[in-house]
């Protein structure tokens, strides 16, 4: 029985081996492409070769836009190998040490992670600051535009308790509901609420999409909603959310997560590199990623391609790259 069963497999394995062997000497179009690839990469090696880029893709659309634009340029213009890795922020940082991640293209500031992984902050030195990526990150508490128009005084945190009852939902247990977002984002809302004596309870939406959906729905149906949101985000083009004023950010007011009672700072979004990867001075890919910077508008354009037009991120990036040759050229020059 063994024999009868194994015979077809064995025969096939032998034939497969022959067929695969044939690829070495075959004359198909793939072999030609392979040869030209091989010679191209050896030619590239002569002047400026590009190795592999392990690109972390963190879970929000604008990040995806930046990651894919960088990745697709590196692939198509420099011949790099780009591996996209869909990871949350923290996991990405841990990947620097193991060589699984080379680039985080949009970092919103993680003092704790910097302390752990950056040499100058006392960490193990597996990560280094790659400089600003050109985007400005803004985090606030937001309400839908209709609400700001109907109750202008709601835009000051001191008046929030007055409206707490209107924000009540089945989830908030008698208090007003505050919509938090993806657990992996930088959020201090529970502490802020507690320390400002606000009669609210944080309910987490779970992710970017859920928050987005909630704000869209709130605007469309004139529902009461207050929550954590951020720019750059393509939603603002359709629904210009209004920020609620909190006590202004001062240096160090968010150092102790339990005692936060201030607004989020505007963040210059940074690139973070794996130290080992960034040290490859003769790598064209490294040089390009170090140089890359773009605006919130550009990012929103690509993000919209992805999220609203439902384009594949790589295709969305390509569309933008084709439309903006001069910007691309400047990064590569």
């Amino acid at each position: 029985m063994q024999v009868t069963q194994n015979r077809p497999i064995g025969a096939l394995a032998a034939l497969a081996a022959i067929a695969l062997g044939a690829t070495a000497c075959g004359g198909g179009d793939i072999s030609k492409a392979e040869q030209s690839n091989a010679s191209a990469s050896s030619a590239a090696a002569a002047n400026n070769k590009c190795g592999t880029i392990n690109m972390a893709v963190n879970p929000w659309v604008s990040y995806e836009a930046s990651a894919y634009v960088v990745g697709e340029i590196a692939k198509s213009k420099l011949g790099c190998t780009v591996n996209y890795k869909e990871l949350k922020e923290d996991v990405s940082w841990q990947g620097f040490g193991t060589g699984e991640v080379d680039v985080v293209i949009e970092d919103w500031g993680h003092p704790d992670l910097e302390k752990k992984f950056m040499k100058d902050k006392g960490g193990d030195g597996s990560a280094e600051d790659g400089g600003p990526n050109g985007n400005k990150g803004i985090i606030h508490w937001y309400v839908p535009p209709w609400l700001a128009a109907a109750h202008p005084d709601i835009l000051d945190y001191q008046n929030l308790n007055k409206y707490a009852a209107d924000f009540k939902t089945s989830e908030s247990g008698g208090q007003g509901q505050f919509l938090g977002s993806d657990p992996s984002y930088v959020q201090f809302d529970e502490a802020i609420i507690k320390n400002l004596d606000l009669n609210f309870k944080v309910v987490f939406s779970g992710g970017e999409a859920a928050s987005l959906e909630a704000f869209k729905k709130a605007e469309a149906n004139k529902e009461w909603l207050i929550g954590y949101f951020w720019e750059p985000q393509y939603l603002f083009a359709d629904v210009p959310l209004k920020a609620v004023k909190l006590p202004p950010y001062t240096d160090g007011c968010q150092d102790d997560p339990a005692k936060v009672a201030c607004d989020y700072p505007d963040t210059v979004l940074e690139k973070i590199f794996s130290t080992k990867w960034a040290a490859k001075t003769d790598d064209a890919g490294v040089a390009f990623v170090k140089k890359f910077q773009w605006s919130n508008e550009d990012q929103n354009t690509v993000a919209k391609y992805i999220a609203v037009d439902k384009m594949d991120p790589a295709a969305a990036a390509k569309k933008w790259i084709d439309a903006n040759p001069d910007k691309v050229k400047a990064w590569l020059g």
Partner: peptide
Amino acid sequence: GGLAAVAALWLSTQKF
């Protein structure tokens, strides 16, 4: 079928 499979296998290593 086996022969066809092998032919397909070979083709798939040669043609885009």
